[in-house]
Each structure stands twice: as structure tokens, then as C-alpha cells.
Nucleic acid binder design. Structure first.
Lengths: 325, 325
DNA sequence: TTACTTTATGTATGCGCATACATATCACCA
DNA sequence: TGGTGATATGTATGCGCATACATAAAGTAA
């Protein structure tokens, strides 16, 4: 920066100003500085800038999995929104484990992010302490709670499970099964569903857990297991993700079962392919774009005015009735 | 760090050493320092550390799209591998546009990454210049070239297209069509396929471009278009991604076409669901995990010994014959 | 014992920038 | 003409750490 200044005939400070407050520099000086930057190929050192100004323009984000399109898509929105405000996102995968999340939080905090996004509302005590100590805006997404670390953006998973139970019961189903990935929030929806459905129909729900992440293959295998090993035959199947539901659809067809005639299938998430399946998948829509952008807005608001009050954003959900249930 | 030192009765330097070279600090001093760190909740400032040491332990990665599982999955491996060596990955989405890539490169370089990963081998001239100027290891992935900026890890897309053409021709197909997403590498495979297949069979290939990213819906619509508007009826369909092929399978079934009896379908990528479709998808397997880890290893090697010589890693591809073709 | 090495720690310094404050110049009005 | 305020630029400083170098203490071989 000093070298650029020398070339433009000004001091380092003026170069700094030309970059961050161009309106405070006279037009011709500005031009000379810009020419000098061009000529030298100067790239400002954001590390030094952050150290001096105590603002890193970095926002850290922790998601369970990058390969899960559900997280990837909302992070894409989140990042784009923040980028347009001059922030960069430092992204890491935590897995579904609060201890590894805790380590990552410490690592991320060492980069002095201006704010942080976490997935879910369950974090280790140590993690909460670090975050509180860091004194930066924090947004927890994909779930809501009355006592967020700072802010939260999401929806109520218990309500969602209940709503699906009511919906399927009202469609006339008396029997139901669930297929759920190994994900705390999905399990919460599952038990809410199960409880409500049993209460309505008087019949127990066959709950199953794939023991891993959601995938088409896992959905196929889960349905096969449900039919072959537990004798499930007719009724509704509520899957914790569209991906599982998709696998269920494939397996059902391979077995000659008619959906929704023999078996109604519901997914969760309204992923882009849901409408393109045969039959089109009935599912629960979550506005993932809104999730990403509301989370970004919330952080930005806090960064501008640290006393911004609203801290709980319930984005809700919507049952999308299509052909499969 | 000075405060921690005061509490432990040592200077700031000793604290710094305790953190980065614990073997150079006497055991009891080390313990006192660790207790002090624990007591104060001290989190080292990586920005200052990077500024002083000129090593940021940050590696920047630019991919076209985070929501494309194909990129997400190899980046997951790449990140995990680097994390285990003490590096963090700063990830951004470039879209499929070299100008926006160029801007992102500048932004990323301002954070002084120790190395950079780029997707593909086509970059703006300006981008190449910045990268060369930054003087850091660079790895370009998903493609290979004789003249990488620094290193490249991938496979030959022209060879892949040709191999698929040979494969389908040998299966006895005389007619073929292609459905390709709007992606430079996919288009290169398409034209290689097309040229080779025409040469072998004497018949022109019906090429189509979805004009956007690959998706199940796009695959369905593309097949519908192929059949309704261009009269394609029997033959082989080579899709630029498994996702498109999946859509083709659904549309074919919806139209009562038998796969592979009436129409053979090939995908590309061997995504996890390919084996779980009905019929199971014949596709081209790319070892994405290897891609991520070889790229990470290549960068790590360069970081340790800057004169490491090998710079082109051809990972190849493999045609996986399953039921759909 | 001397001289030399090893181990443990401290002092001084600077990485590259942003900020507070000082200074200089100029326009403008009384 | 002096005084006031606005505009443009510069000087001094420190952000929090890592590194080179200096020093002190203890061990080692002759």
C-alpha cells in the first residue's frame, strides 16, 4: 500500500482511504491511486485490514453436511446475500455431532468472524460459552426455540410432525409407518407424528430409523425392511426427507405396489425433484431460500445496529398435496 | 496472549511457543500456560498469527455450484483432508462464469490463502495473472490440460465422450441423442460423443442442451422435447449427468417406454442413487473422493516442498454397465 | 576447572493496514 | 483582513501475534 502510494505520489493513508472511503479523496488523486493499483497489481491484505479495524468481513457458518442439498441450497442463498454486502462466508461441515461442532466453533472463532451461523439449537455448553464470549451476532437456523443463543430462524418441528399426522389421518389413513434419517430434528418430527397419529387413529405407528443420512438407496431398503420384516402392507408412510420418499416410491413400484392406492407416501423438504416424480410427491415445503436470506438479513441487521430486537423468526412450513398421498 | 502469560508468570512469547511448539516449553510451564488459557477462555487470533507468519492456514476453493452434489461431494473430501492437516477451506460459488470467478479470485487472494483450488481449466487472463502474482500453489480440478496454471487433477472429457460413443455403438445402437446441461465440460463430452458416434454409425446424433443446470425435471422435459418435437423414438440417450438420466428414466416410464428395450439411457457421474434406480443406471464413474483427496494431497505436497514436480494427475473414468444401457 | 553445548525463556521488532488526530489549503463571509 | 469551516492529506500509533536474536541457566566433556 505504501508502494502504491509512492507511485501515486501520496502516503499510505491516502491509498487506504481511496480504497475504503473514495469520496474522501480528491478525484484526480483517486485516479492516480487507481492507476498505480492497476500498474502494480496490488491486492489489499484483508488480514492486516481486519487486524487493524477489528472487523474481518468474514461470517462463519457451520452446517451438518455440505453434501445434503437441503443445507447446501440454503447456504448458497445465505452466502450470496452476504457477499452482496461485502462479507465472505467461511463454511465448515460439523457432521451431526456437537463435540466436533464445538471444536470447529473454536477454530472459526480464531479467525475472528463478525458473526456466526449454526445449524440447529442443540450445542454443547462449552460452545455456548465460547460464542457468548466472542460477543458476536449468532443465528441458529432450521429450528426455533424460546432461548436462542442470540437469534434463531426456522420452524417448529413438533408442529410439522403433528400437521403431517393430521393431514394423513384426514386423508382417511388408519395405518402409518415412518422412515427417518438419523437426524435429531427429523427424529423430533417423527415422534410428534407418531404420537399424534396414534392418538387420532388408535393404531401404533411403525417407526424406523435408517441409521444414516437420507438417500434414495436408504429409502428403498427401509421400505423393503418395513414390508418384509414387519409385515407393513397398506397405509401411509411418512419419510423424513424427500430423498427417502423417492426411494420408497422406487421400491414400491419395483414391488408392484400402487402409490397412493396401496400406499400413500409423504416426503419432507419439497426438494426440486419432488414435483417431477411419478407420482408427484406430496411433501412438506420449507422455504429454504427464505431461511438463508432471513438468516443473512438478521445478522446484517445486528451488525449495523447491535441492539436490533427481534430474535426469533418462525418461517413455518406448508403441506404440499400432490399425487403420492 | 500477554494476559495469559501474565497469569502463568511467563511472557507473551512463551505462550505463543506453548501453542505452536509445545515441545520447546518445559512441561510445568506448559501446564501453567494451559491452565491459564483454560481460565481465561483465550482464543488465539489467527488473523494476527497469519499476518506475522505470512501463513494463513487458509486454502481457498472456487466451485461452480455448491448445490450440485457432484462438486459438494468432492469438496467435502477435499476439506476434510485439509482440515486434518490444520488448514481451513474458504469456499465460494462462482457460477459458470469466468468473470465472476475472476472477481472472487481477487477477493479470496486478499485473505492471503496459502493455496487455491479452481474448478476447470478455463480462466480469464486476468485471473491467471493474479494467481501467478500471488505465487501460491494452485490446483485446477475436474479437467486436465498440458498447461495448467500450476497443477491439475481430473480426467479427459473428450476421451470420456468417445468412450461412451464406442460403448453404446458396441451395444448395437445405431441411433443416439444427447441431453446436456449448460456446462462447458459436459458440452465437450457431448461433442466428442457426437462426433465419434456419427463416425461409427453413419447417423447424426440429436444433441440438446437444457440451457441450465442438471436436474430431474430438466431431464424429463428434455426427453419430452426430444420425442415430441424431434421425433426421436428408439436408440440410446447419453445424458451429461445422472440427474438428467434419472429424469429421462421417469419420463420414459411415464410414456410407457421400456428401458433399455425401447431406449437405452446412460448417465454420467455415478452418483449414489444411480445403482438404486429402476432400472439401475448405466453411467460413467468418476472417483470424486479421489479427486478431492488427490487435489488436497497435491497442494499439501507443494506447501511442504515447493519444488514438487508432478503437476498433472489424470484420474481417468470408468464405464459402469448396469441395466439401463 | 574451562569451554562449549543444550535447554528454557525473554527482548525487540515488524507483518500491513485503519484510525485518531494534526496539519495544510482553500473558500467564504463579515 | 481576519476568522471560520470545509476539504484534503499526512503523522503517529497499535491491532496481536511470530520470528530472529539475545540471554540465562544447566549440563557435558576435556
Amino acid at each position: 500500500m505504501a508502494a502504491v502510494g509512492r507511485l501515486a505520489g501520496v502516503s499510505q493513508v491516502t491509498v487506504s482511504r481511496a480504497l475504503s472511503h473514495p469520496e474522501k479523496v480528491s478525484p484526480d488523486t483517486l485516479q492516480r491511486i487507481r492507476d498505480a493499483i492497476e500498474a502494480t497489481g496490488f491486492v489489499p491484505n484483508a488480514l492486516a485490514g481486519a487486524l487493524a479495524s477489528k472487523r474481518s468481513h468474514l461470517i462463519s457458518a457451520l452446517v451438518p453436511s455440505l453434501t445434503n442439498i437441503v443445507y447446501a441450497s440454503f447456504i448458497a442463498t445465505f452466502s450470496a446475500q452476504l457477499r452482496s454486502h461485502g462479507y465472505q462466508v467461511l463454511l465448515s461441515e460439523t457432521g451431526f455431532d456437537t463435540t466436533s461442532e464445538q471444536d470447529l466453533i473454536a477454530t472459526h472463532l480464531s479467525r475472528r468472524p463478525d458473526a456466526m451461523l449454526l445449524t440447529g439449537i442443540h450445542h454443547s455448553q462449552q460452545a455456548r460459552r465460547s460464542l457468548l464470549g466472542a460477543d458476536i451476532p449468532v443465528v441458529e437456523v432450521w429450528d426455533i426455540t424460546d432461548s436462542p443463543i442470540d437469534m434463531c430462524v426456522g420452524f417448529n418441528h413438533v408442529d410439522a410432525g403433528r400437521a403431517v399426522a393430521n393431514f394423513l389421518y384426514e386423508q382417511g389413513h388408519k395405518n402409518a409407518a415412518t422412515i427417518t434419517a438419523n437426524d435429531e430434528r427429523a427424529l423430533r418430527r417423527q415422534s410428534a407424528f407418531s404420537e399424534t397419529f396414534t392418538q387420532l387413529s388408535g393404531n401404533a405407528v411403525l417407526n424406523s430409523n435408517t441409521g444414516g443420512p437420507a438417500s434414495i438407496g436408504a429409502g428403498r431398503r427401509a421400505l423393503a425392511h418395513l414390508i418384509d420384516d414387519t409385515g407393513f402392507q397398506r397405509g401411509a408412510v411418512f419419510c423424513s426427507s424427500d430423498l427417502l420418499a423417492h426411494g420408497v416410491l422406487i421400491e414400491a413400484r419395483a414391488r408392484g405396489l400402487c402409490v397412493p392406492g396401496d400406499m400413500a407416501v409423504m416426503g419432507f423438504g419439497d426438494q426440486d425433484f419432488a414435483r417431477d416424480l411419478e407420482p408427484a410427491l406430496t411433501t412438506v415445503a420449507i422455504d429454504r431460500l427464505a431461511l438463508g436470506s432471513v438468516a443473512a438479513e438478521a445478522l446484517l441487521a445486528r451488525l449495523v445496529r447491535p441492539d436490533t430486537k427481534q430474535s426469533i423468526f418462525d418461517l413455518g412450513f406448508k403441506i404440499l398435496r400432490r399425487a403420492s398421498a
